[in-house]
Design a protein around this nucleic acid. Sequence first.
DNA 1: TATGAATGAGAATTCATTCAT
DNA 2: GATGAATGAATTCTCATTCAT
Lengths: 197, 197, 197, 197
Amino acid sequence: MVATPRTRRGDTRRRIQDAALSLFVEQGYEKTSLREIAAQLDVTKAALYYHFKTKEDILISIFEDRTRPLDELIAWGREQPRNQETKRELLRRYSAALHDAAPVFRFVQENQATVRDLSIGGNVKERMFALFELVKEPDASLTDQVRSVSALFTIHAGMFALKDIEGDPEDKRAAVLEVALDLIAAADAGRPLKRSQ
Amino acid sequence: MVATPRTRRGDTRRRIQDAALSLFVEQGYEKTSLREIAAQLDVTKAALYYHFKTKEDILISIFEDRTRPLDELIAWGREQPRNQETKRELLRRYSAALHDAAPVFRFVQENQATVRDLSIGGNVKERMFALFELVKEPDASLTDQVRSVSALFTIHAGMFALKDIEGDPEDKRAAVLEVALDLIAAADAGRPLKRSQ
Amino acid sequence: MVATPRTRRGDTRRRIQDAALSLFVEQGYEKTSLREIAAQLDVTKAALYYHFKTKEDILISIFEDRTRPLDELIAWGREQPRNQETKRELLRRYSAALHDAAPVFRFVQENQATVRDLSIGGNVKERMFALFELVKEPDASLTDQVRSVSALFTIHAGMFALKDIEGDPEDKRAAVLEVALDLIAAADAGRPLKRSQ
Amino acid sequence: MVATPRTRRGDTRRRIQDAALSLFVEQGYEKTSLREIAAQLDVTKAALYYHFKTKEDILISIFEDRTRPLDELIAWGREQPRNQETKRELLRRYSAALHDAAPVFRFVQENQATVRDLSIGGNVKERMFALFELVKEPDASLTDQVRSVSALFTIHAGMFALKDIEGDPEDKRAAVLEVALDLIAAADAGRPLKRSQ
DNA sequence: TATGAATGAGAATTCATTCAT
DNA sequence: GATGAATGAATTCTCATTCAT
């Protein structure tokens, strides 16, 4: 059995990202100081600057490293035929991606004002818009467009706003997905004005 | 009889709130300094302290003064019979309330991390939860609860996320309301969204 | 008899300039920290920021306030007829101005690299050039132009480089002035310095 | 027989000096960081420490290596008889030495405050003084001493302050030398009070 | 000969807040 | 109702320097 090496060779960068993200999520970006991040890792502030150029750079790197799956999802979506099954799969994968990188997305959700004028701000919006484009029909009515947006937002919000509702997390995720799928189905079919039966 | 003077005259408090809110919305709470607020009003920082005890106090006062309609809406909702028409009216009024006090709600939306640990944090969540309670059926299935939450979030998100979609603002608001109403109708019926046959 | 007031009403700005200048001269601009300046005045660093926007701003303000006589000298020179007597008077007054504001000019002399890329850099060069223009004849030969520059530099250098030469300060100043006057006389005559026969 | 490799090969030390000097001249000593120097050479900061003990040490080594001609000039001067021709030759050689090692001397000129309290400070002053001693007559009047200093300063200033004056560089150097020679001639002859003719 | 990783000290600057007037 | 002057605490960031490899 080998003693834990004092210097975790090369993983410091990653450790900084982890500590930073967890503090950013807990307290918000602005209210988290580099001092705190450094303290949590038991290194000096200056060490952070060896690995990242600025505080903002830490956040940016977290984004770039952690939200790649979302980019891949969009890329995948663009190669598929635009039909119901693709959209359903998109929502499923979107739900899964959000779930896997929950902290980053929670951070974005709760720090929009901050994210907006960071250089990543653009990316975030663009990606939401790209997803939206993949999910809506090109010539959809305004209402159907709203249904598509709503489907996306339901998944998004479901991730974070359902904490207070009781129930098994997996069940909740399933319920959220069901409602979202229903919304895009409705969007595809046109308006559900009539209550049948 | 003397004309109301256009300048100050006890309305300084209100002017501070306005300037602060507009800056808070633009830049976020933390990134807005009292210096900036004071500068915009052409007074000194110290003057702000004559009217408010702390920076946080400015924000709190804005909340208390500007979100009263939402409290009234909840109070109203509690006195109504819990039926479809009440819920529909709730959503309508909620949409209107959001629209009237858009800046405050936009601020909350974009500064969740900040709002969370301000003393108002509780209020905000509680009110969302109160609305949710008014809109969902007590014994609703998980899926139907999600539909209710989704209806609320659709209105909320519709307020802020639809900027990038083209269309007349009033039309958009109507579309958003339509989708939200559909969602609670479905929640009430315990069935997916109905399709036009 | 009145006790010295704790707060020297309004003269803080001036006191900061004085302390700063003396430290800038002693140690150089970059090696003088705001902490030191504040400490010397027994105030906090933040107090400095109440009176000046940045460190650079302190230096700029010193310049603007202390080198006005030089501007006035140039203005005066421009209104005079360009003849020997004017030039002689210019040099005399220049010598006096340098003497009165010795610390500032000593600072410039010893911190040229710093001054160069401060916003005041331009001013300094421009003023030297303006003086040079007043002292040289428009169509002077290169050699005579050098004589004019040399006259100016003699006064300038004499101010600071003669410390190590023994002699009464007043005598030294007189000697410096004499050499400078000789130089412009020679420049005017278009001939080498004249010798006592 | 192998061709001298163009790349490194023991010349790193020299390359560091060159890069450092050029940055020191451009930006000043304090405002140039080791990071910048290293970056310009495409090595790490630590590499600099292999070749030099400290930042100051880099500067000192530049001095020692680059200003030797001046020491040699002084040594030469001390062996010569103190007469007009020696002095003239001294000024000529001084002008040439300044010209050859212009960057170093420009650096000293513009960073006096810095140089002063570096360990080289002494050297610089001492050498100026040694030159001065060689150029002035032991029992010269104060005025004649000023003439000697002025001659030296004219050469010095001419090197750096004549940028803004139009003319061919070689012509300017010649003019500068002429004025300086004239000054020591006058110093030697006693005062040039009378305007002959 | 170099580098990668880190440190300790310190810099300039900003902020919310206070208080005598 | 408001200001002028100041503070204490914190922040981001930079720097010269060190040392094991």
